[in-house]
């Protein structure tokens, strides 16, 4: 299959990108790695009139330690994220989940910001963004603004990005010591999207769970923060035989999972409960080295 025609711009600076994007019309799209966008174009499910290729904008790429958070540039590839020592040290959950995105060749092209801006609730990263309270840094011709992850995902494939805005990067708060992480991805084949995914972070002291963060993949039109689980897990005993299972029973609360080829909503809800338990157990067993 073959994409329809579009105009193409390749700015080399962010300012230039913003200018081009602002003038390129309503149907213009930002092109980063293109790994989500190009298949849609080829299937003619998307008809952008113009593509603003930000792939050569150096300031959008790279990982930096910014003290209380890690900044991941929007066009940093998944592969670069997974390999980044900063990411691995300070936000291992990001590395764990990103390593499950698609396959190696796609991870070489696909970008961290592109994946998040696509706002696909079946993607692996949005749930992680929610769980870790990432902050989206966005720029337009009128300046910078930040959007907390909780406000970023509005609906299926719809983010809080406004026309003319470009996602420049994401701040991942460092959680500090005592945390363990796990991303539990359940899919029918290695290539398939997550039927359900659970991003879990658990902080414990002496076998007692102090704090839990849980984000759910593909449990609604947006990624979902499992607030009920987080509340219920506080103070319970960590480990497989503890009370984490009861806490995980709250996982499907308030979710509105899709019905599609791979699963019906009731099954997804069931999976969310089972997989959340597993993710919490694994996370509490894999505490980060900085403890």
């Amino acid at each position: 299959m073959i994409p329809a025609s579009f105009d193409y711009f390749r700015p080399s600076t962010l300012d230039e990108a913003l200018e081009v994007f602002a003038g390129a019309g309503e149907e213009a799209k930002v092109l980063a790695g293109g790994q989500s966008l190009l298949p849609l174009l080829r299937l003619r499910l998307a008809y952008p009139t113009a593509m603003v290729d930000v792939g050569r904008v150096a300031e959008l790429r790279g990982v930096a330690d910014r003290g209380d958070h890690v900044h991941i540039g929007a066009t940093t590839t998944h592969d670069e994220v997974v390999r980044s020592p900063i990411v691995r040290e300070h936000c291992p959950l990001v590395a764990l989940a990103t390593a499950t995105v698609a396959d190696p060749a796609v991870r070489h092209r696909g970008t961290f910001g592109g994946s998040l801006a696509h706002a696909d609730p079946a993607g692996d990263l949005p749930a992680v963004a929610l769980a870790l309270d990432m902050v989206f840094v966005v720029r337009s011709s009128t300046g910078d603004r930040t959007i907390p992850a909780a406000d970023f995902f509005l609906d299926y494939l719809e983010s809080a990005l406004q026309p003319g805005e470009i996602l420049t990067g994401v701040r991942v708060p460092k959680l500090g010591p005592g945390w363990g992480f796990h991303y539990e991805k359940f899919h029918r084949t290695a290539q398939a999207w997550a039927t359900v995914g659970v991003a879990a972070a658990v902080r414990q002291t002496n076998g007692t769970v102090e704090e839990v963060r849980v984000g759910l993949t593909n449990m609604g039109p947006t990624p979902v923060r499992a607030a009920g689980v987080e509340a219920a897990a506080r103070g319970v005993e960590a480990g497989r035989n503890g009370s984490l299972r009861q806490a995980a029973e709250q996982a499907a609360e308030g979710t509105d999972p899709p019905a599609d080829l791979h699963a019906q909503p009731d099954y997804r809800k069931h999976l969310a409960r089972v997989l959340t338990h597993r993710a919490l157990v694994s996370a509490s067993a894999h505490r980060s080295p900085q403890t």
């Binding site: 299937l43 084949t189 290695a190 290539q191 398939a192 080829l261």
Partner: peptide
């Protein structure tokens, strides 16, 4: 037909 692509019609890879 709902399974028009390889993203919907699941063929096993080496990992499966």
């Amino acid at each position: 037909l709902l399974t028009t692509t390889m993203a919907d019609y699941l063929l096993p890879s080496a990992a499966d």
